[in-house]
Design a binder for these strands. Structure first.
Length: 304
DNA sequence: CGATTTTGACCGGCGC
DNA sequence: GCGCCGGTCAAAATCG
């Protein structure tokens, strides 16, 4: 298709562009795979991790993710920095920012719908007692920066859009999606970088409790295997979690809810056009049992 | 006709 | 207290 061609073009240019430099500690989906193994083949440079990245804390907002330049390890926001900073798109770099006040949400609907937002009919609204339960537990978050002309990238799950908002200081809106699986509380935000419109920033929140929907798992396994083999020293690897998601031109991955940014690089785009409804493979693909986020989320996060 | 998207209103947090 | 802002809701519209 045309899209694939376009993506291939972008991808090629991107991967060969020596100006793309990433800094920071980018463990590979929680494994110990780091720059030397993953990035050196792309000629990308890294700096030591900022100390602030040591802590795992879902309240921590994302560090900036520089595109075409630097991932700002020296501008990392930590600790209490939250939604305000996250929403502040006025920063110089295209960035992924997450964290926030958004996390009121799902549980509220389950427990009686004292959801914050929305606009129930006034009568109904009045009847809805706001149960200010315990402070909401934030879900793990990950941000992806993907070079693509397509906003909503196929990732093997089905999503329903539930909102769209204009982003301050950006001509591009931010879209909000929720996993269509009723038991699954995973959400994602998709927005386009205002600085580099070719970059799509996707932020996932939560973890899927189900498999992908009709994702070509056999294919995924193949790619993962190949990718892992080429990019990671086997001795340093844990057996899981260094697969990359099915994004064609993934620039980097940031574990948004934690302090440590993570990065995955891809210079290929062959699997961009994933058929939407391929039969699920019954292959031995235990790596992806939790779907995309299963790939991304480090094992220690899964049980949170 | 069910599923999904669009869209304007609403809510809560935060800064001033 | 007020206003801004991000996030969410839900009715209406659209899609398949």
């Amino acid at each position: 298709m045309d899209d694939k061609d376009k993506v291939d073009q972008i991808s090629g240019g991107f991967s060969s562009d020596p100006t793309w430099t990433f800094q920071g500690d980018y463990s590979f989906f929680g494994s110990d795979v780091r720059e030397n193994s993953v990035l050196s083949e792309f000629g990308w440079s890294f700096q030591p991790p900022p100390a602030a990245f040591d802590r795992i804390d879902s309240d921590v907002s994302l560090p900036e993710v520089g595109v075409g330049g630097v991932v700002g390890s020296d501008q990392v926001q930590t600790g209490s920095v939250d939604d305000q900073a996250a929403g502040d798109v006025s920063m110089s770099n295209p960035m992924v920012s997450s964290s926030s006040s958004e996390d009121r949400v799902e549980t509220s609907t389950a427990s009686g719908g004292a959801a914050s937002g929305g606009k129930p009919p006034s009568s109904e609204r009045a009847s809805k007692v706001k149960k200010k339960g315990p402070k909401k537990i934030r879900q793990p978050r990950f941000a992806f920066m993907t070079k693509s002309e397509i906003d909503h990238l196929e990732d093997g799950y089905r999503w329903r859009k539930y909102g769209q908002k204009a982003v301050k200081n950006s001509p591009y809106p931010r879209s909000y999606y929720r996993c269509t699986n009723s038991k699954c509380t995973v959400k994602k935000r998709v927005e386009r970088s205002s600085d580099d419109p070719t970059i799509v920033i996707t932020t996932y929140e939560g973890q899927h409790c189900h498999h992908t929907v009709g994702f070509p798992r056999g294919l995924m396994t193949h790619h993962e295997t190949a990718y892992a083999r080429q990019s990671a020293p086997s001795s340093a690897l844990q057996p899981v979690n260094y697969s990359r998601p099915h994004f064609p031109n993934l620039v980097d991955v940031v574990r948004a809810s934690q302090s440590r940014p993570q990065l995955v690089l891809s210079n290929e785009s062959r699997d961009h056009n994933i058929p939407h409804k391929l039969p699920q493979s019954s292959s031995q693909d235990f790596h992806v049992d939790q779907g995309l986020l299963g790939d991304i989320v480090p094992p220690r996060m899964r049980n949170q």
